[in-house]
């Protein structure tokens, strides 16, 4: 029978993580489904389980200088309610599952699950988020882009825990998140789109765009984003067709039980086009 550990503090958790091949469990909302067993039987976890959600060290939401630090054990509901949470992330988090899930599920868990359809992940890509990874030997930071290597695959080492999601605080007067789900609530994404940008006096200072559920990992192209930087809004509008073309080459979705490849691709590009064309109107409102 597998064991379950409930460490007294983070130090003990890190020790257990190193010494046993245990499965870290924070909210558990993905793991409990993944290892689901017959009614009445405990889930069939492949190894010992390490409970994390009770650890005080992982429960904090804080602003550290120009970085927002979202503790790995903070439930999504609290992240959505935190005033510092960037609008694009708030919108994404609010659209994840339903209230009962958001009361326990964590953003770090969403990231570790590494599903290309993860709503939180799509927003985090556009925000240039990083993961704080801690082991008994110390802490390192990895960008989300480098952290997720494929569907369900990350660079998390067997002795490490994600201890926080780090979101750079930066000016962004453009923040858009759009999920196209299998229904209007309590849904998984057929695809998602996030945009984070700053427009100053009619000039695009920076623009980050990401697309979820249209490839094995979230799609982001810093090269194409750079093509928009320093341009006027009129120039970006004029560039729109060629920007759409850039992403058309990067977006390679699949058919599955939730949607079709053709729909995902068409709608992802429609959302992009509509975003670029509506940019002027958006900025006017600021």
């Amino acid at each position: 029978m597998v064991r379950a550990f409930k460490p007294a503090d983070l130090t003990e958790a890190l020790r257990l993580r190193k010494e046993t091949a245990c499965v870290p469990l924070a909210g558990g909302t993905d793991l409990m489904v993944k290892y689901r067993n017959w009614t009445g039987l405990p889930p069939a976890f492949p190894g010992d389980v390490l409970f994390l959600s009770h650890l005080k060290e992982l429960q904090t939401l804080e602003r550290r200088g120009e970085t927002l630090r979202i503790g790995a054990g903070v439930p999504l509901a609290d992240i959505a309610a935190w005033p510092e949470t960037p609008a694009v992330l708030r919108e994404a988090v609010r659209g994840i599952a339903a209230p009962a899930i958001r009361n326990v599920a964590t953003l770090a868990g969403n990231v570790c699950n590494a599903s290309p359809a993860g709503d939180g992940i799509c927003a985090l890509y556009a925000l240039d988020a990083r993961l704080e990874l801690t082991s008994v030997d110390g802490t390192r930071e990895v960008s989300i882009l480098a952290f997720i290597t494929g569907p369900g695959r990350t660079v998390l080492r067997r002795d490490e825990l994600v201890t926080a999601v780090l979101v750079p605080r930066r000016a962004a007067n453009i923040q858009v998140f759009r999920k196209v789900g299998t229904r209007k609530a309590n849904a998984l994404a057929k695809l998602s789109f996030a945009a984070v940008g700053e427009v100053k006096e009619g000039i695009v200072d920076a623009m980050a765009l990401s697309f979820g559920a249209v490839g094995p990992t979230v799609v982001r192209s810093t090269e194409t984003e750079k093509r928009m930087a320093g341009k006027t809004l009129a120039e970006v509008t004029a560039l729109a067709p060629s920007i759409v073309e850039d992403y058309a080459a990067l977006i390679v979705p699949i058919d599955d039980q939730r949607s079709t490849a053709a729909y995902r691709k068409t709608v992802a590009l429609n959302l992009l086009k509509s975003f670029l064309e509506g940019l002027k109107e958006k900025v006017k409102g600021i």
Partner: peptide, 22 residues
């Protein structure tokens, strides 16, 4: 699998799906 809410209860006052809580 946490989709239907028929198993809901309150944990410290907040709704959870008890099928997903060890």
């Amino acid at each position: 699998e946490g989709e239907c809410g028929a198993c809901a209860a309150l944990l410290d006052g907040a709704m959870v799906n008890t099928c997903l809580v060890p």
